[in-house]
Amino acid sequence: MANAQKSETNNHRLLKSNNSSSKKNEGRGKFLVFTSAVIVIIATIAITVFLGYKGIRTFFVYDVSLWNFLTTTGWDGTENSGAFAFIFGSFAVTFLAALFAAPLGIGSAIFMTEIAKKWGQKFLQPVIEILVGIPSVVYGLIGVTVIVPLIRNHVGGLGFSLLAGMIVVGVMILPTITSISADAIKAIPSDIKDASYGLGATRWQTIYKVIIPAALPSLMTAIVLGMARAFGEALAVQMVIGNVKGLPESLLDSAATLTSIITLDMPHTTYGSVHNSLLWSLGLILLIMSYVFIIIIRFVSSRRKI
């Protein structure tokens, strides 16, 4: 074994320099996957930069006042346009939708994971996961054909309203919240629950004192993810909310959101006009909000105990 090679340690068969083919193969693979990963970064930066640039231009090139834009209403496509009504509309739809979807979704998740375990996980969970994938235009269509007439005939108003928007979006994010919450509750180690039952606690006491506190950060994440989806939803909302450019005075009034106005106005504005530029600023608000939601989710999930 110990033969002539011994002295030539810089030309040994085990050195990399003598095995270039495997190195080349490895290098090519690494380059390929790295490039793909970098494309993800490039896409993100490109979106942020281009939307930021187009959105900010409104305030520098067209001399629109940022304060005026954010705090006043009245949308006529000129320098004096204010987007407050739409910002309000987006937030209103998001919070109202979460207000009924969150308890319902988390309640259902608890039912699936703690009360009817077998049935819940074998049947309900797959069905809910499939419902997460139902396209939003379909929710919008149901809103138009079922919910809007229902409100018009039984509650009042035109039917196309904040209330309709909230219901449609709430139903849409319900499966999302339920499915993530159910996963979170299932992730709680069973010995924690067993300990509680072992101490003679009832199911409700266990849920209230053990399961909800332990899963709270993940449940919050589920709600925020649902809200992020609600905030960015365009077509389903646009189809039922009525798209009136003023502030709504009640739930039964028509309203508009950032997304619904972009959807409606974008095709009708000319490239380079003030009106067009204003729409990019609305888009920038959506982008900023999706960063905000990410930050909230990171903050919430950093408190996760399990």
Partner: peptide, 10 residues
């Protein structure tokens, strides 16, 4: 076999 196999170049 005459080589420190912990070397980086291996």
């Amino acid at each position: 076999d005459g080589l420190n196999i912990l070397r980086k170049e291996v």
